[in-house]
Design a protein around this nucleic acid. Structure first.
Length: 471
DNA sequence: ATGTCC
């Protein structure tokens, strides 16, 4: 495999079927196993790919590595459900509070917040939605624009998001809408889900060099913020599965060959490709609304503890599993991000108007017990279609983690029993052991890779004080 | 990721 080191944590790998760019510092670059290059090589066989890259958090996934940015032209390109990933529309959201970390240092206060959040945000609702007056069809068709006004505390909840609504041809939806999926999905609106999804209460450490920008964004040293990580729940998973099956059948019919049976794709212009894109947009609408409603519940919880005058403005909401039509060099491209986060620099036209001048906050979670980050994109990010990492990235499988790490070690990483303890909603850590920090790469090395590659800068570090997880 | 498999 021919390898060009461009310096600044930027590597170019010449694989059999095309070029792969890798953004990683030396330590992370050396840690990549050969399987991630095999996967890239299979992905590069998809016709007319114009760009493919890994961010430093890249690791093996189904069909495609998590941490992939892959681009095709709209006019003759392909769309791949495998490069979007199974949790369509999964993403991050941060709300600020007027509170200082000292206000919630008391463990009793933090426990009260955890209980209140659990009351308003079910982790795994299986009965009826709390929100009987929300019309699911309206949500999947129109995203945040489909919400009744009473669920929008302030107009900035509509404007401080990557995208509030995704438009698509609703005919595709109406033809593929099993009633069972509708019922399940409605019951899940505003619920957290399991796996790596979480709600964390954190406090900020502002990067001195970005103090001006932090202030513009309303951030201050020691500020309490709430970080939310969730996706499209069963809606995206079930429809995604259905469309993966239909694309697979189409590929067999067309005689398309790929060594990886889990790698699914179709031309954007094909009926099947178009149908998938339409489904995907409905899932993005569900996902952004789901995070909005989770935040709405978190706001209720904070008001229960601190009084009903308290407001929780949204800092930003953005996704890391999707395929978006974006203009790059004035040409319409389909940019797939699977475990990759858009980080646009100041003045870039793709910024949502509220963040046009400053660039938007790029929200990067760490793992339980470690720091998360609020970043700002740089001009140089154009070399990677403005993609940066989506988190620490898994270092080992759930199973391997459970075999390797003890409960004691997990407790230590949460600093249980100290002043610094990260309080967790679970009484036993056993059920979420596969989410311990030891399951993930070192997030600081991942961020170092991104900063060293000049893709983005750190605005604030977010230190965990309490974590709410599903199972 | 997902009422985790019909």
């Amino acid at each position: 495999m021919q390898h060009i080191n461009h310096g600044n944590n930027h590597h170019e790998m010449k694989l059999e079927h095309g070029k792969l760019h890798v953004f990683a510092n030396e330590e992370i670059f050396q840690s990549f196993e050969s399987k991630v290059y095999e996967m890239a090589n299979n992905n590069l066989r998809i016709p007319r790919n114009v760009y493919m890259s890994y961010t430093p958090d890249a690791h093996v996934g189904v069909g495609t590595c998590i941490g992939t940015t892959a681009v095709w032209r709209m006019k003759d390109g392909c769309v791949s459900p495998s490069i979007v990933g199974v949790d369509i529309g999964c993403g991050m959201r941060v709300h600020t509070t007027p509170l200082h970390r000292n206000d919630i240092q008391d463990k009793g206060v933090r426990r009260a917040l955890i209980s209140a959040i659990e009351k308003y945000v079910p982790t795994n609702e299986r009965t009826n939605s709390h929100y009987a007056d929300i019309d699911l069809l309206n949500i999947v068709k129109h995203g945040l624009l489909g919400l009744p006004e009473k669920y929008v505390p302030d107009n900035q909840w509509m404007t401080h998001v990557e995208q509030s609504s995704f438009q698509f041809d609703h005919a595709y939806l109406e033809n593929h809408l099993p009633p069972r999926i509708q019922k399940n999905a409605h019951g899940q609106l505003g619920t957290l889900g399991g796996g790596n999804h979480f709600i964390e209460i954190q406090y900020l450490e502002i990067n001195e060099e970005q103090r001006e920008l932090a202030a513009k964004w309303g951030l201050f040293e020691g500020q309490v913020v709430v970080m939310i990580h969730s996706g499209s729940r069963a809606w995206g998973a079930m429809l995604g599965r259905e469309y993966t099956r239909s694309l697979k059948e189409a590929m067999e019919l067309w005689g398309v060959q790929n060594p990886d049976p889990n790698l699914i794709y179709a031309p954007i212009a094909s009926q099947e490709g178009g149908a998938y894109l339409n489904l995907m947009y409905s899932a993005l609408n569900f996902a952004v609304t789901n995070r909005h409603m989770i935040a709405f519940g978190v706001r209720e919880a904070f008001r229960e503890v601190f009084g009903s005058a308290l407001e929780l403005p949204v800092l930003y909401d953005l996704m890391h599993n999707y395929a978006l039509k974006e203009f790059h060099d004035n040409k319409p491209m389909l940019v797939h991000r699977k475990g990759a986060t858009r980080a646009l620099p100041p003045q870039h036209f793709l910024n949502t108007p509220a963040y046009r001048a400053t660039g938007h906050p790029a929200l990067i979670p760490g793992s339980m017990g470690t720091s998360s980050y609020i970043m700002i994109g740089r001009e140089e990010g154009s070399k990677n279609f403005y993609s940066i990492c989506h988190g620490a990235g898994r270092a080992r499988s759930r199973r391997a983690t459970k075999e390797l790490v003890t409960i004691d070690q997990f407790q230590q990483s949460l600093r249980i029993g100290t002043e610094d303890e990260v309080l967790v909603n679970h009484r036993s850590l056993e059920t979420i052991l596969d989410e311990c920090p030891q399951a993930y790469k070192d997030v600081d090395a991942i961020i170092d890779s991104i900063v060293g590659a000049s893709l983005a800068d750190v605005v604030a570090k977010c230190k965990p004080m309490a974590a709410i997880k599903g199972i």
